[in-house]
Design a binder for these strands. Structure first.
Lengths: 338, 338
DNA sequence: CTGTTAGCGCTTTCAC
DNA sequence: GTGAAAGCGCTAACAG
């Protein structure tokens, strides 16, 4: 009964081969563009049959045999972050030209979930991984190296250096923002650095370090940002009431939004009562009154670059002797909020 | 030589079975938690061996056999859209609890690419699809129905109704915004509806239709939004110079950003010279001077709901006789820009 | 309770 | 030039 017509089920290579009057092997050669040992008429006949039947080979079966899934795993911390969506756009724009597909997972900023999901990625036999790491320890990702799956890191570094890593120059951009605070004529009395859990991520620490140096000798207070904005709002209002004139640095776009909302609630005049700056993942900071001075990154470019590096790695095309950190520069937009 | 130790390659079920002193079948039973017919000690012994060897079954092989890939295909128009990233967050939050993974593709708003990518999704044997359709014709997606892959539509409708569809009430929210223009005391002289290619997408047409009715009897001019903002800026400045006082409706968050940038360039006073409203996918419209009145949607909720409906479909759990359109309501935030 | 066997849909020697 | 046969890693009858 094998190979008989059953309109219901998806056709297999066997079905098509039979219909074209050739063997599975010949079909397979055709599918893989292995035309060298095939008569022109056979080739034509197969082509027609395939088209007629609308046959498409089963990727899983192919990949089981060839160990070639054409799947790239993307592991990011928070998929609703605009930085990330532009990053994905950049990655996808490159991968799709090569016929690769992204399988995307989100760690929700949790190291435990991240590990679990990375295993799942491996289970799906991804051929490469792009990771925005939650941990700063390279050792936490040894199990990936053990499977010999190529990987590149993005947005955040781990140590010691083990994988190619694409980041922007967080330290110097943040330092520059701090310096703007010094020279703006606003006579700030202190810096306030607001960020989600800082120690967890290299990127945030670099931004803090840069800001501190830039705004020196003013002291910098660090406030941890969580969903409880009321607490931060209170702290801020107390500070202002006590006569401080702070320059607030928001470590990413999400925090920046929150800070602006707080300033709005408090009816704070920017920068007269408090300066506001930080990272503008949305690139809309210019629209917000009075025009927020902030760092603009180009995540789509970062994404594309990381995809390119990954593909190089996968194809053993990288002539580099070892992994390196690719540091891109970011633009500081000087507007009116500092 | 089969089954001998080779530390380099990933262990297969055969290797582990051998190491545990059982057959592949018993191993397989263990992996699938089929403990009913297995002695406690065997079970324990296998558990230990699996743990020791860090064995994880190959998903492709499993799925080839079981026809169960645990992969859900997500096909969206523009991955860098914030609406979409929140949508994905919602989808993922539900899928991950069920051990499913997302494979995400972007159509770049192109019907041709969309078709090609959907085929690829099918090739990867996804078990279900969530689609933000580029076409309004259900017939364009017949090939998916033919494969019997469950699908739900999101954000946009196709006709005739064929798949469960989750949208917000675009018509009434937009109508309400138009009405606000009528009663705001601003004495508008016309409406301007700005959108990307309108005819292509049901959502945009509904928004236009609602807005027109709401702002009636004022006339509404429709402007197509593309990357060339200079052209729109010119049109707008001419209109204003000629004495018009328009209420501008931006059909989505991306367009809204563009419109605000144009108003900024033109140094237009909002709403004195031009009212601005529309869809605020970012939920930051409140931060922009003077506080933009706009519709807020909750894409994460929409995403989660669509994932739930899809899973119901996949498990044949839906008692509903037929597909339906699930219309969610959106919130209109009345601020100061109208 | 456990093992043997026969594939899932495809690719790839190796013959002819 | 083309086909037969083995097998990728796993599951699922069917025996025993």
């Amino acid at each position: 009964m094998e190979g008989t017509i059953n309109a219901m089920e998806k056709a297999t290579i066997q079905d098509v081969a039979l219909a074209a009057g050739v063997s599975k092997s010949t079909m397979s050669r055709f599918l893989n563009q292995n035309y060298s040992h095939m008569s022109a008429k056979t080739r034509q006949r197969i082509a027609n049959t395939v088209k007629e039947m609308g046959y498409r080979p089963n990727r899983r079966a192919q990949s089981l045999k060839t160990n070639h899934s054409r799947l790239i795993g993307i592991m990011i911390a928070d998929i609703s972050n605009i930085y990330v969506s532009l990053l994905l756009k950049g990655i996808d724009s490159y991968l799709k030209t090569l016929g690769y597909q992204m399988i995307i997972m989100e760690s929700s900023n949790s190291v435990v979930q991240e590990k679990e999901q990375l295993e799942q990625l491996l289970d799906q036999s991804v051929e490469g991984i792009i990771l925005q790491p939650n941990s700063r320890q390279s050792a936490d990702y040894d199990f990936i190296a053990a499977e010999k799956v190529p990987m590149v890191l993005v947005d955040r570094e781990t140590s010691p250096l083990q994988w190619d890593t694409i980041v922007t120059n967080n330290y110097s951009a943040s330092q520059y923002l701090g310096q703007l605070g010094q020279i703006s004529g606003q006579k700030y009395t202190m810096g306030i650095f607001i960020s989600e859990n800082i120690k967890a991520v290299s990127t945030r620490e670099h931004r803090l370090a840069g800001f501190k140096v830039g705004i020196a000798p003013l002291p910098v207070e660090v406030i941890e940002y969580d969903e409880n904005q009321a607490e931060i709002q209170k702290q801020l209002s107390v500070l202002i009431a006590s006569g401080e004139h702070p320059l607030i640095f928001a470590a990413n776009g999400k925090v920046l939004t929150g800070v602006l909302r707080i300033c709005q609630n408090l009816k704070l005049s920017i920068p007269a009562q408090a300066g506001v700056t930080g990272y503008d993942d949305w690139n809309w900071a210019g629209l917000v009154n009075p025009g927020i001075s902030a760092v603009e990154q180009y995540p789509d470019y970062i994404g594309r670059l990381s995809a390119e590096i990954l593909m190089d790695l996968m194809q053993g095309r990288n002539c580099e002797p070892a992994a390196k950190v690719h540091t891109l520069s970011a633009d500081v937009m000087d507007r009116y909020s500092i």
